[in-house]
């Protein structure tokens, strides 16, 4: 027909293409969930070397760690790690704490006044371990210091036991899907996606920030491995055979989809189905004494056919 009709039809066609493209895209994204949150460090350096602290070969590493510490940490924590006005002392905090705060990207802070937040770690694994080695060499560890786990093996973790312990001790803050949530007073329980098994282990044992600290008296070494196994194997790669997991926040997201997508699509279909098909003869070109006439054609499906038929 006329030019405007062709334009109109083209617009609808491209809209349809866009919708189907996003549909496919969303699906690929959903399928690729595991890629969105890569788990495990790319370079998992074995931390066993840390145990041999007195070997002569360690002197070099100690120097390297010192350099990194002085360059990146000493401004706030003091050159001898004894703390400063805006940062706590690091003497005796233990290797696990240092390792966790560095590999989670909480430290070093973006600005000296900023709040710690998840960001890509500034140092690679070897550098982190160098700093850990340096800081732990400054003072003897306090009793109960878990140390950096060496050779953490979760391949034989009992995920069922881990799930049970997770639901009891972790889910109250991190949510049962590990999505994380806001606690009172601006505190956040961070999401558990994209953290390494070592970080999970260290967080349980050291209780960073407001997180409680779970020692071997409450969660046995085997149970910690179970929990770490559950987090890394299942929380981070959830079984979602039903489609997009909607952020793992449960009925809030589901209700949103149900109302705005579900009921919305039904209403769009109703818009299309409910109105009388009109032909040009039906209408006079001025819109007087307008009844609550058909007032829209943003039909969900088959919109262009609808128009073509009426105007063919």
């Amino acid at each position: 027909m006329t030019a405007s009709h062709a334009t109109w039809r083209r617009a609808l066609l491209s809209l349809a293409l866009l919708v189907s493209a996003s549909f496919v895209g969303v699906f690929l994204l959903g399928g690729g969930r595991a890629e969105v949150y890569p788990s495990g460090n790319s370079t998992e350096v074995d931390a066993t070397s840390l145990t041999s602290q007195d070997s002569p070969a360690a002197a070099n590493q100690l120097a390297g760690g010192r350099t990194l510490f002085v360059e990146n940490c000493s401004t706030c924590h003091g050159i001898d790690a004894s703390g400063g006005d805006r940062a706590p002392p690091l003497l005796g905090v233990g290797g696990a704490t240092v390792d966790l705060w560095l590999s989670s990207g909480w430290m070093p802070l973006a600005e000296p006044t900023a709040e710690p937040e998840r960001k890509p770690a500034k140092f690679d694994r070897a550098q982190v371990l160098e700093i850990v080695r340096y800081v732990t060499s400054l003072a003897p560890a306090l009793p109960g210091d878990p140390g950096v786990p060496s050779g953490l093996d979760i391949s034989h973790a009992n995920v069922a036991e881990g799930f049970s312990m997770f639901a009891l001790n972790c889910a109250p803050c991190h949510t049962i899907t590990g999505a994380g949530d806001a606690l009172a007073g601006g505190i956040q329980a961070p999401p558990l996606h994209g953290v390494t098994k070592t970080m999970v282990w260290e967080a349980i044992r050291t209780g960073p920030g407001n997180m409680p600290r779970f020692g071997p008296g409450t969660i046995s070494p085997a149970q910690v491995v179970d929990i770490v196994g559950y987090v890394v194997k299942d929380i981070q790669r959830p079984v979602s055979p039903g489609g997009l997991s909607l952020g793992g926040v449960g009925p809030v997201a589901e209700g949103f989809v149900g109302l705005f997508v579900g009921v919305g699509l039904c209403l769009l279909a109703a818009l299309w189905v409910g109105d009388r098909a009109e032909t040009e003869e039906d209408g006079e070109h001025d819109g007087h004494d307008g009844p609550e006439g058909p007032d829209g054609d943003e039909d969900g499906e088959g919109g262009d056919d609808h128009r073509e038929l009426a105007h063919a």
Binding site: G144, N169, G207, P212, F214, G215, G217, T218
Partner: peptide, 10 residues
């Protein structure tokens, strides 16, 4: 001594 300082259990 079962609990760390800052720990809890049910």
């Amino acid at each position: 001594g079962d609990l760390e300082v800052g720990g809890f259990t049910t």
